[in-house]
Write a protein that binds this DNA or RNA. Structure first.
Lengths: 254, 254
DNA sequence: CGAAAACTTGATTAGCATCAAACCAGGTGG
DNA sequence: CCACCTGGTTTGATGCTAATCAAGTTTTCG
């Protein structure tokens, strides 16, 4: 939906917004950033942060909006400040597949730093706040502070680890096992107070490679088993003390 | 099998070996390296290559030998010069899963550049020649030539693309479709003359998440359909002009 | 030659996809 | 306000696909 090339212009009115939705005067946003210590610029001191004012913008997306699209020219990297973003791709046959999720403090669209097109789509699963870092800024900063590249490389490795974990744990085995692993994964992206983002059955199917009917049946079963308790349409509570034994029982059978 | 911390010592006798199996005096091996233009050091000129003599070693592995193991301290990156290496991981339940393959000019074990432990095992599928680049050397070179980090980051992105492709194409859909995609993938790692490395049925199963019996049945069917022709136990010929229509027919049904 | 490993094929079963029907919540327009 | 529609969801009936269990064959290698 939202064109990834659309940059929110920083106008005076926006700079005084509440709760982070504002531009970045004198690096103030970055200095106070809630994910600063986890972010790419954690290593920079306040002086360095002062250099990057006006270039970084905070964006908000509603659930369902697209942050960037595969094949589009990668003009910026993004750090997720709140909410959950899904990284997805269409197969050659046209089926959509969710490759992984990104939550608080995760960086997505790294390939933009290489001046490449995005390798996948990024879509907001929930309402989302992200911080947008243009490629030219990254170029600039890595030139002045080469040690930043080390952080970038760590990010790549972390993303790769995540992809590998999906391959070994989420993608493999019988449907029930995959669903249990998904619940475990979702609880990593909790939205406060042991509540997790609760995907649609279609989204579950795209993550676990099953039909939405199978996903629905499994959800019903796990609900009856007390492993998960849907709160409303988009939120649920995962009962870890029931989930973990269920997972152990799985591996015992296999 | 082979301890990843075991470095082949460079002794005079080894330096005169045939066909690349020798150490690296005055960067001679690198200068003449068959994958130099694709490798990490493609951007370095001859002078820079001269700097790195004695640090780089060529290794040979027989099929089945382990190049490095997950959890081991990553002391070196490797460039594959010939043969096929599989990157695999054990799930928490103890099942082995092949995550991706690496062939000529691919770099594996990138995480060693970050002084991290390896994230997966690397095992030779065929006889393999690799070039070993110690982490300290990478540190050194990236310090002297920061532009090298750009190449490293490109490598990470390529590996990530590969992982994503497995997630979207190899991991998804019915068994026959996955097997056809595997044949397509294998033909990227051809060992000359339209011959490809022909995995065991167990290896196919670990790549495609199916039992070796199912893999065997599918192989038999595709052989009867003239899509693949096993030459000997470890080599086969893939008939692309039959494979591609078969893949198109797949997507039509789905 | 005998043993072990890889492979093939068959019979049966379990698991999941497919097709189909009905339900529910939220939103729209009369 | 209600009737209606739409998109997400649940559940059932049925059939196909792939796992499992089980021989039996071929290949490799000591």
């Amino acid at each position: 939906m939202s064109d990834p090339s659309t940059v929110i212009p920083i106008r005076p009115g926006m700079l005084t917004g509440t709760d982070g939705f504002h531009g970045n005067t004198q690096g103030e946003t970055c200095r106070r950033c809630s994910v600063r210590q986890f972010g790419l610029f954690g290593v920079l001191d306040d002086d360095a942060l002062g250099d990057i004012h006006t270039h970084i913008a905070d964006l908000r997306l509603s659930a369902g909006e697209t942050l960037f699209s595969a094949q589009a020219t990668g003009k910026a990297l993004y750090t997720v400040k709140s909410g959950v973003v899904r990284i997805e791709r269409s197969s050659e046959a046209g089926e959509r597949r969710i490759l992984r999720l990104a939550g608080r403090a995760d960086v997505i669209g790294l390939e933009a730093a290489l001046d490449q097109t995005y390798a996948a789509d990024a879509v907001a699963c929930t309402d989302v706040e992200v911080c947008r870092m243009p490629r030219v800024l990254i170029d600039d900063l890595t030139h002045k502070h080469p040690e930043l590249m080390h952080d970038l490389m760590k990010r790549w490795q972390r993303t790769l680890d995540d992809a590998d974990e999906w391959l070994t744990e989420i993608t493999r085995g019988p449907a029930r096992h995959r669903m249990l692993r998904l619940l475990l994964k979702l609880s990593e992206y909790s939205v406060g107070d042991s509540l997790v983002w609760w995907p649609t059955r279609l989204e579950m199917g795209a993550m676990l490679d099953m039909t939405f009917e199978t996903a629905s049946r499994l959800v019903s079963i796990l609900r009856r088993e007390g492993i998960v308790e849907p709160i409303d349409l988009r939120h649920a509570r995962v009962n870890m003390s029931a989930l973990l034994p269920a997972l152990r029982a799985e591996s015992a059978r296999a």
